[in-house]
Design a protein around this nucleic acid. Structure first.
Lengths: 231, 231
DNA sequence: CGTGGAGTTGACTTAAATCAAACGCAGTGG
DNA sequence: CCACTGCGTTTGATTTAAGTCAACTCCACG
C-alpha cells in the first residue's frame, strides 16, 4: 500500500514461523481483558479496536485506536503494572503470536525485533499526542485533532475511499472517552463543527470537508508519515 | 539497587562500546530541543528531566518526567512526526549514544535491543497512566496521582531518604503542566491536600505523610514494579 | 535596597459537567 | 403489522469545577 516498508521473502518467512494463529472476534468483544494480560501478542489484520483503562468508579479513558497493521500486547511482556484493556470496535481479525517467543525472536531475527520496537515507538508518539490533546486543548480543538488524526491514519492504510470519506465506527461515547470530555459536550461540539462545515458524519462515514480549517483549529502540523514495517 | 536487573560483565562491555560519551547539563537547559531531533540517544545518569510538547500559542504539556535510569530519544529514530522536547529539570548527567548505531546494536547484541524495548514499553505505560489522569481525573485526584507516581519511581532508584522524604525539584508550573491544570488551580489543590495532612512540600522535599489516603483519592492500585534493565 | 521569580489568595468568569427529557430508528416479538 | 424496547443521539436548563485576572507576599540574589 505504500504505507509499509517492503519486506523480503525471507523476513516474511520468519514472521510466518513466529505467527501462531489468526483469530476473528466480533465487535465489542475483549481482545485483552483489562487487568489481565494474556500470553499473546497481536497484530490487527482487519477492523478497528481500541486500548483503554477504566477507573474503579467506571470512568473510562480510551488510550488509542488501533487500525490494521497496528501491534498490541507488548507492554504486558515487560511491565507488571496493571495493564490496559483492548476491545474490538468492529469485527476484527488478528494475527496471534505467543508472547514467550518474543525474546527468541529478538535473538534470532533482530531485524524483526527492531521493527517491533519501531511500531511501539510510533504508538507512544500517538499517546503523547493524545495526552497533549486531553491536557491542553479545549473541546473544539480536541474534536478537530481527533478527526484529522484518524483520517490521516486511515489514509495510510487505504481506508479512505475515492470520494474522500472513510468508514467511521466510533460512536460519540468513544469520542468522548478518548478526548476526556463528557458525552453531552462531545455531542454539542461535534454538531457545532459540523454546522460550520468542517466535517460531516453521515451513514457511518466521516467526510473532512474542510481539512485545512480543522488543522488550523487543532493546531495540527501536517507531517508526512513514514513508511512503517509490517509484522 | 535492586531496581535493576543485574547485567553480566560481558553485557556491560557491549554497553560501554555503544556509549559514545557522557555529558553534563545545567538545570533548565534543553537536552533535545522541541521540533528538532538530534542524532543521539540518552540515558539519564543523574538528575531529573522531562519530556514536553508545546502548542503554537505557548500552552505546554509535560508528557513525563525522567529519573536516573530512564532512556530518551528512541521516538526520533523511528517517527518523523514532530518530536517532543526534553529539558533538564535539575543539573543532569547523561550517557550519550549515537542513534545511527541503534540498528547495529539490535543486530549484534539482541539482548540490549530487547532491553531498550523494555524501557520504551515502561515509558509508554507511564504515558498511558498520565493520559488517564489528564483525561478522567479531577484536580484532587490528579495531584494525588502525581505525588504517588513520582514517589514510587523515586523509591526504585534510591532517591527516597531514610526519613521518608525525597528531593522534589518540580515547581508548581511543572505540576500544572503535566496534570493539564492551570497554575492557580494547581496551587490551591496542592495546598488543600497538604492542609488535609496527606503530604508536605518543605524545603524542596516531598513527604508523603499519608500515602494510603493519597492512593485512595487517586484510585491508585499499588503494584510491585519489576526490576528493569540498565542501559 | 531594589528586582524578579515562585508561591499564595481573593474575586469573578467561563467552559464543561450534570441532570433530565425527547427523538429517531432498528430489532423483536406478540 | 404494529406496539414495545433499547441504544445512540440531540436538546434545554442548571450547576460546578476549573480558568482567568489581579494583587500581594516571600525570599533569594545582585
Amino acid at each position: 500500500m505504500g504505507a509499509f516498508v517492503p519486506a523480503s521473502p525471507e523476513q516474511i518467512g520468519h514472521i510466518e514461523r513466529f505467527r501462531c494463529d489468526t483469530d476473528m472476534l466480533p465487535a465489542g468483544r475483549a481482545i485483552i481483558p483489562e487487568h489481565q494480560s494474556g500470553k499473546w501478542l497481536y497484530t490487527l489484520y482487519a477492523g478497528w479496536a481500541f486500548r483503554f483503562r477504566t477507573l474503579s468508579d467506571g470512568r473510562r479513558q480510551i488510550l488509542n485506536f488501533l487500525l490494521p497493521g497496528d501491534f498490541v500486547g507488548l507492554q504486558e511482556e515487560f511491565v507488571d503494572e496493571d495493564s490496559c484493556g483492548v476491545e474490538a470496535l468492529t469485527d476484527v481479525s488478528l494475527c496471534v503470536f505467543p508472547r514467550d517467543d518474543l525474546w527468541p525472536l529478538f535473538r534470532d531475527h533482530p531485524k524483526l525485533g527492531y521493527d517491533i520496537t519501531w511500531l511501539a515507538s510510533r504508538e507512544e508518539v500517538w499517546v503523547d499526542q493524545h495526552l497533549v490533546t486531553a491536557g491542553r486543548r479545549n473541546a473544539d480543538e480536541r474534536v478537530a485533532m481527533l478527526l484529522i488524526h484518524l483520517f490521516r491514519r486511515a489514509e495510510r492504510v487505504a481506508l479512505v475511499a475515492d470520494d474522500g470519506s472513510m468508514v467511521f465506527p466510533l460512536n460519540q461515547q468513544h469520542i468522548a472517552d478518548i478526548l476526556g470530555l463528557s458525552l453531552v459536550h462531545t455531542n454539542r461540539t461535534l454538531r457545532r463543527l459540523q454546522q460550520m462545515g468542517f466535517h460531516r458524519l453521515e451513514g457511518g462515514r466521516l467526510y473532512l470537508d474542510d481539512a485545512h480549517a480543522l488543522e488550523r483549529v487543532a493546531d495540527y502540523a501536517e507531517r508526512p508519515m513514514r513508511a512503517v514495517p509490517l509484522i
